[in-house]
Design a protein around this nucleic acid. Sequence first.
DNA 1: GGTGAGATTTTGACTCATTCTAAATTGAAT
DNA 2: ATTCAATTTAGAATGAGTCAAAATCTCACC
Lengths: 148, 148
Amino acid sequence: MSQNLTEADLSHLQEALNRSGQKVTPQREAVFQVLLAKRDHPTVDEVFNRAREVMPGLSLATVYNCLETFVGCGLVRQVNHERESTRYCPNLAPHAHFRDKATGRVHDIDLPPEVLSSLRSILPPGFDSETIEISFHGRAQSGEARSN
Amino acid sequence: MSQNLTEADLSHLQEALNRSGQKVTPQREAVFQVLLAKRDHPTVDEVFNRAREVMPGLSLATVYNCLETFVGCGLVRQVNHERESTRYCPNLAPHAHFRDKATGRVHDIDLPPEVLSSLRSILPPGFDSETIEISFHGRAQSGEARSN
DNA sequence: GGTGAGATTTTGACTCATTCTAAATTGAAT
DNA sequence: ATTCAATTTAGAATGAGTCAAAATCTCACC
Ligand SMILES: [Mn+2]
Ligand SMILES: [Mn+2]
Ligand SMILES: [Zn+2]
Ligand SMILES: [Zn+2]
């Protein structure tokens, strides 16, 4: 379960933090490790509980801080569905989210470049978009429902 | 400004409420009127303040109740961006939302059927989507920024 | 290997949009 | 008129997220 970060993942973390002038800390390593270990779009509380297993003294505020830092340097994305608790996703490829009505689980849906550009094309002139969020809501067959 | 509901809008309201076994009340008429009068995706508080001008005794809880009722019978859509307050939209045509970073305003973006179906097509087999939400975030030239 | 400045973490208080509860009011049907 | 369910209302409660201030850590520098 609680694998350490691979060499590659650690240097990804280091590089992104350095790039924005911030330090690698044990707490940030632990939180990042949790996100990579199980890519199921955990809430802050879920991250907190998982990270505490490996670092018992960790505080909830620090988890909020770490996740905000990661979002700020582009290491993870925030995922919101309606007014539910914010979830976090370390998948940096362009993708949409599918939330399963039955289980509440969130699945990554790959977003091909041509669909992305057809989406951009619906913006009238004068609208300059920096980010696009796409979320589906419905039912997923349990066979498909591997927890990502 | 505070026009009354047109005959057509009132019967739209009546029909939708009847269909789901609920009553037309003065409060529901006032809240619905507010949504139709200025289609700028108001928050609950904005709806509350506008509606109070025409019905001073109205309570905030009732505005929450009315809006929930309207969402339930398909008269309006909820619009969420990140963790900001929920906004409400009476535009029933398929459309995406563009939130202007600078002003916070939300604009409707028409969603052509072919783009909608190209989006549906990215779902792998086994995923059955009931709703899709698409939101852009960026800057809109002020010329384009009529408040819808 | 110390020192000090700045970054990070921690705790606990706080905010505020939303939800809940229970009492009052309304209104349609008999 | 009476009744009963639906609706409205005021106010309390909830809970994810934020903030402020003190404690701790890191690391460049000596
Ligand atoms: Mn969420
Ligand atoms: Mn919103
Ligand atoms: Zn994702
Ligand atoms: Zn809209």
